[in-house]
Structure formats: C-alpha cells, structure tokens
Design a protein around this nucleic acid. Structure first.
Length: 568
RNA sequence: CACCCCCUAGCUCAGCUGGUUAGAGCAUCUCACUUUUAAUGAGAGGGUCCUGGGUUCGAGCCCCAGGGGGGUGACCA
C-alpha cells in the first residue's frame, strides 16, 4: 500500500509509541466524567475532570501547549504544561509523546483541572494524558477565524459522502443535522405511542410489491425458488393489521425504488406510515399539522423554520386547496367532468408532454406537477384527487369522480400523502382491475393485484385514515437542506474503485530483490509482464534514474542483474 | 438516459496563448518559544496534474475514449 508522506510519519510515530511501552490502542475502558459542551456551558474553575476526545488542533510553544479536544458534544481547549504534566525528572510524556508522537486526529484521554486562561478561554489544565487511539491518516485542516469564517473547509460532496466519518469529525454542522433527524423521528414516535398506537415491523421482502406506483428492486429467494421484491411501500401490510383489530399502527419504513437519483431521491428512503381506525382524512390533516408542529419544535424550539432563505411556518392550521381549484387557479383549466380527450387537449395547450400510456389520473397529475406544485411553499394540503390516480383511496363522499385524499406540499415538494382508506372490497377489486388495464397499456408502474390483501378487506376493515410522511424530505425542510444526501448518513453512490496495490510477490518471483520490488512497481513496472516486456538497458536506466531522483539507499543496478529479471 | 461543468500536494485552490525544474495558504518535518486560540519566527520535504490513447520539437493545458463527482432536464416520493 502506498502511503503519503504524512501517513508514513504517523506510522513511524506509532512504532515509537510502542517502543516507549505505550499501547496506541489500549483495551481498558476510560472513565470519562465530563463533556466539552456541558462543561463550558456551566463552567466553574478548579473542577477535577476526566475527559476523552480527538485532538483537533495543537499550538505548541516550547514548554507549554494548547490543544483543542473534541468529544461528542463539542470542543474545549486543553492546556499542557511540561512541568504540570511531568512533575518528576522524566519529561518524556510531554517532550516526546505529546509534542512529537501525537498528531491532529489522535484520540486521547485527559485528567485535569478546569481554569480560565489570561485571554478568558475556559480550559482544562492537563495533569494526566493517555493515548486512546492513534490516527494514521491526516484529517482535513478546517480552521475557523475570529469572525467565524471557515477556511479550507472540507466541502467536496463526493469525499464528504464517501467518508462521512471524516465529514462528521470536521464539519460540526453535519453532526447537528443528523441530531435533528433523530429528534424529528423521536418526536413522531413519542406522539404516536402516547396515543396508544402500536409500532410494528412488516416485511421488507415482499412477493408482490404493492401499496405504491414505482419500479421495485427484485431479488431471488433460493430455498423457495421465487422472486422477491424489496418493498416500495408497506401500506397493504399495515391495513391488514387494521383488519386484525389494532386501532392505530405505524412503522418507519425503509422503502426501495429502482428509479432515478437526484437531490430529492435516493434509492432507499424512509417513510413514516400511520393508519388509524375509525378516522377520515379530515381528522388526518389535523393530526399531521400537530405532528409537524411538534417535530419543528423538537428541532427549533418553535414552529418556524428557514429553508433556502425562505421562512416556513409550521404553525397549524395549514391552507387546504382541492386539486381542481389548484389547477383552475394556476392554469385556468377546470378538470371537473373532463374526459381523457379533453385532458390531452389541455396538456397540449399548456405545453406539457404526455405519453399514450397515460390515463386520466396520470394526465391530471402531469398538469398539477408542471403548473401548480412549485407554488406551494408554505405547508399546504392539496385535497380530493381524481379517482383514477388513487386506487387505494375511498371515493369522495360528495362526488365519486374524486377521492378522499390529500398530499402535503412544502417548498413545492410533496412531503405527505394520506387517504380515507378504501375499505370496500368490491370497489378495491375493481380499482385493481383498472390498474391491470393501465399495465396492459404500457404503464410499468401500475399496481399488481394483491389477492391476499383483497381477502383481508373482505373480512372487513373499519373505516380508516392512513398517511405516509417522507421522513427524509421532512428532515430536509426542518434542517434547511436542499439535498436529500445531506440528511442521509450514507447516500447511495457508485461503489468506489480501490486501486489494488502492485503484486510485489510476483515481481520478486522474477528475481527482483525484495528491497527493489516496491520501487520497480512505483517506477511503472507493476506487473511481471511489464518487466519482462521491457528492454533490459532501458529498464536499468529508468530504475537507476528513479533511484537517484528518490535518493534510494540501494546500490545502483547492473545490467547483468536486470537481464536476469527480464529473462533476456 | 440527455446536456453542461468539475477532477492539480493530506485539505482548499492558482496555473495566462501549449514552452525552463508544476505553484500558494493551511497541514507535515527540523529548530526556537511557559497563557495561545486561523499562535508566531526561521528553514525543509511533499505531486500517477483522474486513467488510457492521440496531435506536437514540447501537453496540467489541445483532440478522442473511459472512470468518478456535481448541476439541469426526464422519471419518481
């Protein structure tokens, strides 16, 4: 493995620590009794503390040094004085271990006393120093100046996502985003369990990918010799549980959809699904309002958030607009009573591209998506979707052309989707059959018929309202992020290609001495074939040039020696 | 999948019209320094210019192909 200069220095320091009898990766637990942020917040001088964390910076001034120690809560300055740390004759711990062998990024434990420096910085005077973990790779050197401006920030998205561990260490705001994510989920879970609803787990591997319109990932079960799908939704399973007699069930469901990736889509994402018996979608709107307000308070302490420079107000109630009115307002088109032909004409007038496979529902969805969606910045419920685009939703109580469904839009993005659930088994069967006809027309996202689900409905499901909330997107809204990758710890990326090191053993098999083999490889001859094909004179010249340039402590090569390698 | 942009030291980035030995700040190493905080001062080392071809007397720069990433569109939540 080829190491950078800085890595080689650190490996050498590691070896020297061992020579001094210091285990750079000790086994015993370290008895931490204080953390940086709470300590600084309620600072009192003269307190004995035992802390552990990562050294983020060092300022060495001869016999005294300052360093920043970062733990899970934040950073605190530590002060190391040679004679405080090493009161006896032996100053090795300070002079050699701290000053020479430790680096930025190393994890240490310290015991000491709190005090305030001349410049007023809350600090810890270190009296004991323990190496807890030596780091081999240098961290990016992010610095913040007096005005709070960040210099040399670690910003490359590729590196940040691939090495999230580094991102979290050097970019504190990233850590706060994921703490906020956890708070949002916790607030939702508490709100449900307080009301007696049950958190459940349903299958991720499904024989029929149901409950949504999307392309699934497919896999295969060997023992059963059947295809299985990673779930695109868990809706149909949760409804089976309502049939079974639970009043309220919910699941934070990791769903998988084999579709495009962009700043609002990741192949796997998290939806909170909640189903509550004997309720309808009006009740659900109020429930969602309260839920989002609570989630916002959990993150911000109030119901206001900022997103991409715009204030978003999560204070209930939210505006409610029917889909018909939304389209009427933004396009002048009244979809009420319009047939497929009329809709196609309207799309043509509005310059919206459509495909032959699209039915009424998809056409209306296109118009809304193109002309209306982006207008809804503040949380807004769009209600009463056309029946064709909602095969699992109860028909509207006043007009069977529409359904009792709403979606919640924030900042022009769909965040939640909810229905008065269709519980009429005859109607549900007919709706599935409509989907089959769409599939026959070429709609590859039309739903499959789930016979077992229909059987469950035939046993009787109480009137139920259900909602799915896009957790990743909600977290984006609440943490001022415009990319889903910023709220997923490990967003999906193409696998990284690790350049495998040269096969030094194969080179040595040609007769190349072990001490020369890595240099031969580094000079560009990293396979036996490349050595054998080389002209001995040219190879010798190149390697001796390499030797000189890199000041290798090896005798210059003779032509006879090189000829034995190439077999010439 | 289409179009546009990016890939240079550990990190952030310069690098002109193709022209000497590819630069800067931070980081690293050596020395000095007992209250600093983007510590300071002096000195030094560090490069597969993403990869592979091509054009050229000469390529980090131009051309072709490939890889990775970002943005926009399409699809979707």
């Amino acid at each position: 493995m080829i190491r950078s200069e800085q890595e080689r220095v650190r490996l050498e320091s590691l070896a020297q620590l061992r020579q001094l009898g210091i285990d750079p990766y000790p086994a015993p637990a370290y008895p931490v009794d204080a953390h940086a942020a709470p300590l600084a917040a309620a600072f009192e001088e003269g307190k004995e503390v035992c802390m552990a964390g990562r050294i983020l910076s060092r300022r060495i001034m001869g016999k005294a040094s300052f360093a920043e120690l970062q733990d899970s809560t934040g950073r605190i300055q530590i002060y190391l004085n040679r004679d405080e740390l090493c009161p006896g004759e032996d100053k090795t711990l300070y002079n050699t271990v701290f000053k020479k062998l430790l680096d930025r990024g190393d994890i240490v434990g310290i015991k000491g006393t709190t005090f305030t420096t001349q410049t007023g910085e809350s600090s810890v005077l270190v009296t004991e120093l323990t190496v807890l973990s030596k780091s081999i790779r240098p961290l990016p050197s992010v610095k913040t100046d007096e005005e709070g401006k960040v210099h040399d920030a670690f910003t490359d998205p590729e590196l940040r996502y691939r090495m999230r561990y580094v991102d979290l260490v050097v970019n504190p705001a990233v850590k706060r985003t994921f703490e906020a994510r956890s708070k949002v989920i916790q607030a939702m879970r508490e709100s449900f369990t307080e009301r007696g609803w049950l958190e459940v787990d349903t299958p991720v591997l499904q024989p029929i990918p149901g409950g949504a319109a999307a392309r699934p990932f497919i896999t295969h079960h060997n023992a059963l010799d059947i295809p299985l799908y990673l779930r695109i939704a868990n809706e149909l399973y949760l409804k089976r549980l309502i049939v079974g007699g639970f009043d309220g069930v919910f699941e934070f469901s990791r769903n998988f959809r084999n579709e495009g990736m962009d700043r609002t889509h990741n192949p796997e994402f998290t939806i909170l699904e909640l189903y509550v018996a004997y309720q309808d979608y009006h009740w659900m709107m109020e429930t969602v309002e309260e839920l989002l307000a609570r989630a916002c308070r959990a993150v911000h302490g109030n119901t206001k958030a900022t997103l991409a420079g715009r204030d978003i107000d999560f204070t209930p109630p939210y505006k409610r607009v029917t889909m018909r009115d939304a389209i009427l307002e933004h396009t002048g088109v009244d979809i009420d009573g319009m047939d497929e032909f009329g809709l196609r004409e309207a799309c043509a007038r509005l310059d919206i591209e459509v495909e032959d496979a699209m039915g009424k529902g998809k056409l209306i969805d296109e118009i809304f998506g193109e002309c209306c969606e982006h207008h809804y910045v503040q949380p807004t419920f769009i209600t009463d979707y056309p029946v064709e685009m909602s095969p699992l939703t109860k028909a509207h109580r006043d007009n069977p052309e529409y359904t009792e469904r709403f979606e919640l839009f924030i900042n022009g993005t769909e965040v939640a989707n909810a229905y008065s659930e269709l519980n009429d088994p005859i109607d549900q069967r007919a709706r599935f059959e409509d989907q089959v006809r769409l599939a026959e027309r070429g709609d590859d996202e039309a739903m499959f018929i789930d016979q077992d689900f229909l059987r469950a409905l035939e046993y009787g499901m109480p009137p139920t309202s259900g909602v799915g909330i896009g957790v990743d997107r909600l977290v984006m809204m609440l943490t001022d992020q415009t990319s889903i990758q910023e709220v997923l710890l490990f967003p999906q990326m193409r696998p990284e290609v690790f350049r495998s090191g040269p096969d030094l053993g194969a080179l040595e098999a040609l007769g190349i001495p072990a001490e020369w083999a890595p240099h031969v490889a580094a000079a560009g001859f990293d396979t036996p074939e490349s050595v054998r094909e080389a002209k001995p004179a040219a190879l010798r010249e190149k390697l001796n040039g390499f030797r000189k340039k890199n000041k290798l402590d090896l005798p210059a090569l003779q032509i006879e020696e090189v000829e034995t390698w190439t077999g010439a």
